[in-house]
Design a protein around this nucleic acid. Sequence first.
DNA 1: TCTTTCTTTTTGACTAGTCAAAGTGCGTTC
DNA 2: GAACGCACTTTGACTAGTCAAAAAGAAAGA
Lengths: 225, 225
Amino acid sequence: MPSSTVEDYIKRLYYEEQHAPGVLVPMGRLAEAMNVVPGTVTTMIKALADSGLVNYEPRAGVRLTDGGRKLALHVLRRHRLVELFLVQTLGFDWSEVHDEAEELEHAISDKVLDKIDALLGFPKADPHGSPIPCANGIIAHEPVQPLSSCIVGTRYRIARVLDNDAKFLQFAERNGLIPDAHITLVAKDESADALIITCHDRASSCTLGGNAATRIFVALPPASH
Amino acid sequence: MPSSTVEDYIKRLYYEEQHAPGVLVPMGRLAEAMNVVPGTVTTMIKALADSGLVNYEPRAGVRLTDGGRKLALHVLRRHRLVELFLVQTLGFDWSEVHDEAEELEHAISDKVLDKIDALLGFPKADPHGSPIPCANGIIAHEPVQPLSSCIVGTRYRIARVLDNDAKFLQFAERNGLIPDAHITLVAKDESADALIITCHDRASSCTLGGNAATRIFVALPPASH
DNA sequence: TCTTTCTTTTTGACTAGTCAAAGTGCGTTC
DNA sequence: GAACGCACTTTGACTAGTCAAAAAGAAAGA
């Protein structure tokens, strides 16, 4: 059974690969993400390569193997089911659950996970809109784009809000920026690095910095035919 | 924050102290209980003594300090709340939850613990009848005796069934030997090391070996005035 | 091509936890 | 009171994970 350290590396690697598909993940990138010095990553990656979870190309970078990707999705499944469980069953706020899930995802057995899955009605997404991988490792990939790359005037549906910043999640919730909310990008001020968006459910608008806008992912709403 | 290894040693030490009050716990006893060699225990106990969790008397044994006892009760609180949660909320069988809780007790934050406590209605005991310590470290000590030391003919209430043997718990449940069940010790055959008991709720009786009888703790039923 | 710079790897060391095996203390027995 | 036996402690070694700092590649500039 992989240690929680191994699971964390693999999970991070999956994340990095998602955000830069097709290229090897450089060691420095991973070191920064994992908050360790580069030498530690080199050592660790060599061990992961030995256990068949990654392909390691010295001085070039690292890539998950199929086995590594499968493990990553399993960890992600635990993380996201736990997050939803904390919100739905235990009444946590969606801004609090990421850190809690970060611990619990390593301690939960498949048996407990299945029970939670059933209790929640086999959900498809976590509280932030991130898809929950199936037990067999299949994950839905909805075509989404960051709010920062959206077109002024178009109506969108919020698909996901990244979960790693509690303060931002609290702001988002206050302003109705939650998954499945419908919004329109009203204005985009490149020089001020600001976006103004309207939230249709509450007929209010709010202003977002460019950085915050990269944390919200939107999709086109279903065609109203 | 104490590691889960430290928590396991402290928890075990608490358990040993409960089963032999007033005397120092010998290192060999602890080594056997923790499934490590004696040398490992010596090393570990010295470290625990340095962090003020135990009093260590070389070649005599070890005893929890007040701080150690507080930690033990905190771990026990997590363990027992998790067990009850697994049974009550997730629908586990009471025979399965001990091993699951053994992992989860180290990963659960106080925040999650409080939510679980509230969800379950601030319960007083886990599914096996063991008292759940309060957050402030107070634990109810009901006067109980092992079934093995009971008097033939007297009516008792089952207070606790020890939780560490799944097979035995399944047997106990099948025979109605669960907390708050009322039973009478019908016969005691010392030479055969067997006890025959009647379970009042189901008007059936069953036979128990002497060893099994030490796993069931009973109290006198409330006076029927 | 040579040199500088940046990233990556290597090396040596450290903590937590563990074991195997040798060494030590202490009570019992003769 | 010397010797035995047992419990306990010490020592050296090992794994996992980490850091600091030195060494090595690779790429880019002069």
